[in-house]
């Protein structure tokens, strides 16, 4: 099956590129120091009503990290192939367009997941070495990471989609950041003077409200369906665009 061969190459290519390691360590250090900061703050002021993880993922810093890292991961997936001309070599092998799109998407998603392992590692460290013991609250933690994965899936599909539009990696990165930020800014609308049904409707799409719910440990199936269907739609669009690009050239 060509998908596995392609997926192994795509996922593997992140781990041999220096840029990927820069992104990985920047995220790890950023998250680590922020985690440390929140922990110390809670300790000094005796805050008990939130967990450290909950505080970490409901702040501006977390969202900024998420929104910046995804375009950097995904900008090269198609743009580089177009620029180097390797797409011609790839698509004259017996592979189908959807296999190429899916392998690139899952390759990028794999690296995205790798980027968030340090946060989990911080939690484990905290529960292992803290005295008195701080437990890991598995249900809220699981829900939080599930939502990070879901939002990541959606953002990565936006990144893959913008990468198929251009052969310039920088343009692809800026475009995907703009789109990601646009979808994220739905979260800001409830803060404006919007009331009634409109506010309720927009609340469903608000990543901030979803994170608030999930990090409390409450599972909601609506975001799951929304993010997965949006991802499928964007990947379908990507596949059609890839095909169109080949056919019209």
């Amino acid at each position: 099956m060509a998908f596995w061969t392609l997926y192994r190459r795509e996922a593997g290519s992140y781990f041999i590129s220096p840029v990927a390691y820069v992104v990985f360590f920047a995220t790890a250090i950023g998250i680590g120091s922020y985690f440390n900061f929140v922990f110390n703050y809670f300790n000094d002021f005796g805050i008990r009503q939130y967990t450290v993880l909950q505080a970490c993922v409901n702040t501006f810093f977390f969202w900024l990290t998420l929104m910046v890292q995804v375009p950097i991961i995904t900008m090269r997936v198609f743009s580089e192939e177009f620029k180097m001309g390797t797409i011609e070599m790839l698509l004259t092998a017996p592979v189908e367009e959807w296999e190429v799109v899916l392998s690139k998407f899952f390759g990028a998603l794999t690296f995205f997941v790798t980027l968030w392992i340090p946060l989990l590692f911080n939690l484990v460290l905290l529960s292992t070495f803290s005295n008195p013991h701080v437990p890991i609250f598995w249900k809220p933690t699981g829900n939080t990471f599930l939502l990070v994965l879901l939002i990541g899936t959606f953002y990565v599909s936006i990144g893959v989609f913008t990468s198929v539009l251009t052969k310039n990696q920088i343009i692809a990165a800026i475009l995907s950041f703009a789109l990601i930020f646009l979808t994220f800014s739905i979260s800001f609308i409830p803060f404006l003077n919007v009331t009634g049904n409109v506010r309720d409707l927009l609340g469903y799409f608000s990543a901030l409200e979803q994170m608030d719910t999930f990090s409390k440990g409450v599972f909601d199936s609506r975001p799951v369906i929304f993010y997965l269907s949006a991802t499928v739609f964007l990947l379908l669009l990507t596949q059609r665009l890839l095909e169109a690009r080949r056919l019209k050239s």
């Binding site: 290519s13 590129s17 180097m84 001309g85 390797t86 070599m89």
Partner: peptide, 13 residues
């Protein structure tokens, strides 16, 4: 078929 495109694009990494 085996196709070798002009300018031989290859994965440089």
């Amino acid at each position: 078929i085996g196709y070798m495109p002009e300018n031989v694009p290859l994965y440089n990494d």
